[in-house]
């Protein structure tokens, strides 16, 4: 078992060695002691363990031996901190409650959940996060993105950006912003397709959010889009690796600046296809990437001149 270095503030009331005054303390989990590293004095023994509770008397206890509950989430209107009434229709002794009372409890439960949203803002968040869950579900983006989206939406709501605009549009834009900022490749088109909101509206709201919240967006990296397009067209791993090489070189030469990353990724894949001899047309790739063939041709020209590639 290792000695852990004890940092100030790790353990209340233990700051320094009472004998030599050194602040260099070590914690030994095996003996449960805190030792002064310079003089060897045992500052504290029988340190409390911080792991989950061990003893379990029943199966239920065993199942949740943790000291904490579910983590708070920004994606819930009250961050998941409120208490809810259980749906199980059983009283404290475990007997099921009578039929007549069931209706009462049903009503109580309904009012309890309604009363959770005190202010209009709460109600707004509720609706927005409902929408968010749906979008996240359809786009299968990681949880961190959904949290980020919720965070951005909350900020937007505070700033009053939602006023006069549709909740779902701002929510969709927030999600797009979150994807951009965490570099999870999802296009405006993707989001528009699942949210049933026009791409232009999302784009408009996105620009508004970035401007008003003063967000700095990382430049979209074409590398991240390669595997997405490649799997859609059904290209080999070899070809997509080649495409990654090409993009890397293109970025070094600086021709990628200011260009649509999707277009660049698509063009690189197309070049890779030609080099690796995989038979895919510009049209195939253009469709999968959601760009036009013209874009691919234009990017291709740039790549060709910059990287001395073979002819088309």
């Amino acid at each position: 078992m290792p000695f852990k270095k004890l940092r100030p503030g790790d353990l209340e009331g233990v700051e320094k060695c009472p004998i030599c005054g050194s602040k260099d303390l070590l914690q030994d989990d095996e003996s449960g002691e805190i030792i002064c590293a310079s003089c060897g004095f045992v500052v504290k023994e029988k340190v409390e363990s911080t792991g989950p509770e061990w003893r379990a008397f029943s199966k239920d206890e065993k199942d949740n031996r943790s000291r904490v509950g579910t983590p708070t989430s920004l994606g819930i209107n009250d961050m998941g901190l409120s208490t809810v009434m259980d749906r199980s229709n059983r009283d404290a002794t475990g007997k099921s409650i009578s039929g007549a009372n069931k209706a009462t409890y049903y009503r109580l439960r309904m009012w309890d959940s309604r009363s959770k949203a005190h202010e209009p803002a709460d109600r707004n968040l509720r609706q927005a996060f409902n929408e968010l869950n749906r979008l996240v579900d359809k786009l299968s983006v990681p949880g961190s993105v959904s949290e980020r989206a919720a965070y951005i939406y909350r900020k937007a709501l505070e700033k009053g950006l939602v006023r006069g605009r549709s909740i779902s549009a701002i929510m969709a834009a927030s999600l797009y912003t979150a994807c951009r900022s965490l570099e999870v490749p999802r296009t405006l088109k993707d989001i528009a397709a699942v949210s049933n909101i026009k791409r232009k509206d999302i784009a408009k709201s996105y620009r508004l959010i970035v401007k008003e919240l003063d967000l700095k967006m990382p430049v979209a990296d074409p590398v991240k889009s390669v595997s997405r397009i490649a799997t859609r067209v059904g290209l080999s791993e070899r070809t997509s690796r080649k495409a990654l090489d090409i993009i890397k070189k293109a970025m070094q030469s600086g021709i990628s600046a200011g260009k649509d990353p999707m277009g660049l990724a698509a063009a690189a894949l197309y070049v890779a296809c030609v080099v690796e001899g995989e038979n895919k047309t510009q049209k195939d790739i253009a469709e999968a990437a959601g760009v036009t063939e013209v874009t691919i041709r234009n990017r291709y020209k740039g790549l060709k001149s910059a990287l001395n590639l073979p002819k088309e």
Binding site: E30, S31, G32, K46, T50, E53, W54, R67
Partner: peptide, 9 residues
């Protein structure tokens, strides 16, 4: 020797 539980020590 060793650590003790938080709740009961």
């Amino acid at each position: 020797r060793g650590q003790v539980q938080m709740l009961t020590r």
